[in-house]
């Protein structure tokens, strides 16, 4: 081959890719997304529509009581009524709004606390880091559901105490992850270069570190949302979470659970408690599918074909 050794820096072939706008790139990635990711996105979109437009979609009110408790499935009450005669189908739709709303608020709060402290600890790396980290170690030694049960027994169950308690417990996990990824970025040469340039702490945090830890944090947000969602559903199912008359899926399962014993007489009635349970499962499946794809993409560690 006749390869001349003539050298030009600008012509040097790197892994030069065509430049595309953010939207073009997103669209190209989306087109390559596996079907599980598409299912995930469809599920999440569906739930969001339900949550936002609940009053328009639901045929009856959230706490509207009808004459017949445990009414069978019918045209009037698509999924029948519950133990005190409320329309289950309508409560299911309102439940999307309440359960997702509370879980989202909790996750945001957890990230605000855990993420903020994690960043500070990662950059500071002194006694403050030691103090928070050891404290978090201790708190994480108590299983979160147990911790939540204990605190709820003290403060009583209400939507607000639920949000604050779960967010606090969950923020320990967020703290650990944020600190770990931020520490990895903080030791990079470009962070050292910024420090040698004389940049302040705020700039280093905002411009050098934060943009580079976003992908794992976004994925973690999805996973933590699932976790929070399941914890709240479990607590409600146990009767110490979201309290009536607010409709939520965990409590709905508990309230109608006894219907399952009549499966041999009315199979449809037996499905009634399973529907809100399935609604909980479906959204976590959706989020998990999406996060799984996102993780594979952003880590670049795709499985070898």
């Amino acid at each position: 081959m006749s390869d001349s050794a003539q050298y030009s820096a600008a012509a040097e072939v790197g892994q030069v890719r065509t430049r595309r706008s953010r939207w073009e790139r997103t669209w190209i990635e989306l087109k390559k997304a596996p079907f599980t990711a598409w299912i995930g996105m469809a599920i999440i979109a569906f739930y969001l529509i339900l949550a936002v437009f609940a009053p328009l979609i639901a045929p009856h009110g959230e706490a509207e009581v009808f004459a017949v408790p445990f009414a069978p499935w019918s045209g009037e009450h698509l999924l029948g009524t519950d133990q005190i005669g409320r329309d289950i189908f309508s409560r299911l739709i309102y439940g999307a709004r309440n359960t997702i709303g509370i879980a989202l608020a909790t996750t945001f709060l957890a990230f605000l606390i855990g993420g903020g402290l994690g960043l500070v600890a990662a950059i500071n790396r002194s006694w403050l880091d030691q103090l928070i980290s050891r404290g978090v170690d201790v708190f994480m030694a108590i299983p979160s559901l147990i911790f939540a049960l204990m605190l709820l027994s003290i403060f009583g169950a209400s939507a607000w105490s639920l949000i604050v308690i779960i967010a606090l417990i969950d923020s320990t996990r967020v703290f650990r992850l944020t600190r770990a990824v931020a520490v990895n970025v903080a030791v990079m040469d470009y962070v050292e270069a910024a420090r040698l340039r004389g940049e302040g702490l705020g700039w280093v945090m905002r411009r050098e570190i934060l943009p580079n830890i976003m992908p794992p944090l976004v994925a973690e947000f999805g996973l933590r949302f699932c976790f929070v969602f399941l914890t709240i559903a479990s607590l409600s199912f146990l009767g110490v979470g979201i309290q009536p008359p607010t409709a939520d899926w965990g409590s709905m399962v508990r309230e109608t659970a006894q219907l399952i014993q009549f499966a041999q007489f009315d199979i449809r009635a037996a499905f009634t408690p399973l529907i809100p349970a399935a609604a909980i499962a479906l959204i976590t499946v959706g989020v998990n599918f999406l996060v799984d794809w996102f993780l594979q993409k952003s880590s670049g560690l795709r499985d070898v074909k």
């Binding site: 030009s8 820096a9 600008a10 040097e12 072939v13 790197g14 892994q15 030069v16 890719r17 430049r19």
Partner: peptide
């Protein structure tokens, strides 16, 4: 001055070769 040109202005590091 470093033998590159303004085409590089908008590039990200991942779009450069090792020498660049």
């Amino acid at each position: 001055e470093i033998d590159l040109n303004e085409d590089f202005y908008d590039r990200l590091p991942s779009e450069l070769s090792g020498g660049q």
